[in-house]
């Protein structure tokens, strides 16, 4: 098993495997998000309290939950890269970071456009909003650190250490922020509880959450392939690809 897995740490093999998986995952992501979003926008029943504005939930909740998942997977990849010195894991971590940042940004923006009609303000210092904002800062820190090293092997290690320190901190930050806003904020603001959601609303939401996950995986593969090419510019197989690409 270990030997079989190791063979995919070879850049050329993992590049080809990612290329083979890519169309399938892309189709799955488009299908899932298409179905989930259309179902959510057109067919899901209107919320009796929030009216049609609640339809933002079908992108807001997937983005918010997947932003956390992307961070954890980036940290796991960095950990594997640091401990077992597997370069492929470093490249994967480097390709997840910008995607995670964009997803976190989407979660923040959709949250605030939902907050404006419901709470009457674009931004409140609510626990969830604040911890999501901090998550965005953590992503930006990892991206900035990775970008500022010339030598990308070192860059991956430095960014990996930061990602791991961040992942230890995320629960602490989350907990502290929860606790802080519960002291300062009266409980007038509440996002609709998930458990009270009827099936017709829950189904498209779950489909979209899964769709966002598959989409993140797809974009990660695209970026991973680029990262492999960029880091292996001296290998003959990459050079052959490059000459073929230019001749096209």
């Amino acid at each position: 098993m270990w030997k079989w897995l190791n063979s995919y740490a070879d850049p050329e093999r993992s590049y080809n495997l990612a290329g083979k998986l890519l169309p399938w995952l892309a189709c799955l992501a488009i299908a899932l998000i298409g179905v989930g979003t259309t179902w959510g926008l057109l067919f899901a029943p209107t919320d009796y309290q929030q009216g049609e504005s609640y339809r933002i939930i079908f992108i807001h909740v997937p983005a918010a939950s997947m932003s956390m998942m992307a961070y954890v997977s980036m940290a796991i990849a960095s950990f594997i890269g640091l401990v077992w010195q597997i370069k492929a894991a470093d490249w994967a971590a480097a390709s997840i970071a910008p995607i995670g940042a964009v997803i976190t940004f989407i979660a923040l923006v959709t949250g605030s456009t939902w907050g404006k009609p419901m709470w009457g303000t674009w931004w409140v210092w609510d626990a969830r909003l604040t911890s999501e904002l901090v998550l965005l800062f953590l992503y930006l820190g990892v991206i900035a650190l990775y970008a500022s090293f010339e030598d990308k092997v070192l860059a991956a290690r430095a960014a990996g250490i930061l990602a791991i320190v961040g992942v230890i901190n995320v629960p602490i930050i989350k907990y502290s922020v929860d606790w802080w806003s519960s002291l300062h904020q009266p409980a007038t603001i509440k996002i609709t509880e998930k458990s009270s959601m009827p099936m017709e609303m829950l189904m498209p939401l779950l489909i979209n959450i899964f769709g966002f996950g598959v989409m993140i995986a797809t974009i990660t593969l695209v970026r991973y392939r680029t990262e492999v090419l960029a880091r292996n510019g001296m290998r003959p197989w990459v050079r052959a690809l490059a000459t073929k690409e230019v001749a096209k």
Binding site: V134, L138, G141, A144, L145, G166, Y175, S176, W179
Partner: peptide, 18 residues
């Protein structure tokens, strides 16, 4: 490294501040 430093460590300081 100066500007980068603030981006890296200020988010980690949040729990202590709170």
């Amino acid at each position: 490294g100066g500007v980068l430093l603030s981006l890296l460590i200020l988010p980690l300081y949040i729990p202590v501040l709170i």
